[in-house]
Write a protein that binds this DNA or RNA. Sequence first.
DNA 1: ACCCGGGTTCCATAATGTGAAACTTTGGAC
DNA 2: GTCCAAAGTTTCACATTATGGAACCCGGGT
Lengths: 256, 256
Amino acid sequence: MAAQTGSQSVERASALLGLIVESGAPRTFSSLVDELGLAKSTTSRLLQALERSRLVYRDRAGAFRPGALFSLHAARPSALHDLAELARPTMEHLSTLCRETVNLAVARGGQLVEIDQVDSRYLIGATNWVGVDVPAHCTALGKVLYAYGALALPPGQLERRTAHSPVDRAQFEHALVEVRRRGWAGSLDELELGLAAVGAPVRAVDGTVVAAVSVSGPTNRINDFGITRLGDLLVTELRGLSGLLGHQPGRKGGSA
Amino acid sequence: MAAQTGSQSVERASALLGLIVESGAPRTFSSLVDELGLAKSTTSRLLQALERSRLVYRDRAGAFRPGALFSLHAARPSALHDLAELARPTMEHLSTLCRETVNLAVARGGQLVEIDQVDSRYLIGATNWVGVDVPAHCTALGKVLYAYGALALPPGQLERRTAHSPVDRAQFEHALVEVRRRGWAGSLDELELGLAAVGAPVRAVDGTVVAAVSVSGPTNRINDFGITRLGDLLVTELRGLSGLLGHQPGRKGGSA
DNA sequence: ACCCGGGTTCCATAATGTGAAACTTTGGAC
DNA sequence: GTCCAAAGTTTCACATTATGGAACCCGGGT
């Protein structure tokens, strides 16, 4: 019933690696022992093997963190492509549900980076955003990343793009509270008149927000669909993605 | 020359993973069999285990690519921090050698992203660049990333910052050829009068350029040090980093 | 000095990983 | 369509390799 056939040491080592990578924070040896329920000796040996292979390393405090191979991968431009590929099915699905442009973004280098887009099914719709530089606080994606701390609000004036753009920092902070409460963010006519978007977070298994997905289109069509309905839809659909990014949702194990 | 002690299946699996991640391109099953020299059956079983653990996945063509765990990590803002941490010792070392500001950058989302800096030992020197938005074609880091294809030159006018800024595309392309030939890039007074920098690539084990490191300071001091000497120094020092990013350089004492 | 908690090493045991070969699947040639 | 080769998976008998309990080590708190 346990693992399929064959390699159990590899699966155990991978499980350790999963714990280390999924929880953004450094993991201590004993927390790993506890969580997987393996013998200390076994855990120790497996971690040593992973360390030799540069899949994990110990920081100064002796805690385990994702190793050089992960950093190497992260440095490649193609890394985000892979994320996009994982998210693709979900994004396509959202596209079929609401027929509007769907976007995926992450925070990188203190900036919002759009990494993928599924185009609107309508002739009139949001056009390509990937690579375009827009003020994040006027976008649903940006609000989501700000709200969950994936992105830090830069100092200085908040740029005004339209009469609806949020420019007051206090008010904006308050709006972020609201975003966290509801679980999604809206942006109506804030970036460009007639353009609206609704966005929600993509979470890793540990709950950390690692990316955001938005649906955007003409304000009237978005309104017709229903802002709240759209927000809730996004939240629901994106929940599925968390599973993809981490463990299998199904199999429970461990707890000796 | 057996591995230390214990877990050989984990090490073998990790070796497979290493091959898959290090070579940017998707790896085919048989290339992995050939390269590691393991039995087909063993390779197959190990890869299946890695696949179950989401450390690799097979694309449509059936080739192996880094799995969801890698994408997840790459999406985290902290991912580049880890790279910075790996590069730190090298950067510190460069700093002690030439006493100027040392910077680390990668290409992300079509843009150059500075991710770490070791400040100049002088009172007058390049100040903080991290997060500052500068035209990449006027910087040594940018030239390096352009030269090795990590970054694509955007269409449109090349912004002029000083009288020395490269603005002619044909000339710039030619300069990139020169960069590739020498292995490093210089930028004298191109971004700001009196500011100079020399940069060189950080390569993964397969040779792909994943990042760039530069040394920058007042033009006169950089000149005094010697542009070529600095370029060669960078190339030499950064070669060591490739080791860190990939295979083990040798399990022995290493750092004193 | 003492003890305590986190971590590594030893070692006997057998469970687990191993590879040759048989087998299946895929795809190309004719 | 048939035939064949290459690519990959599963089987299976065997022994190498992983396993966990206990002993051991190390640092630091009292």
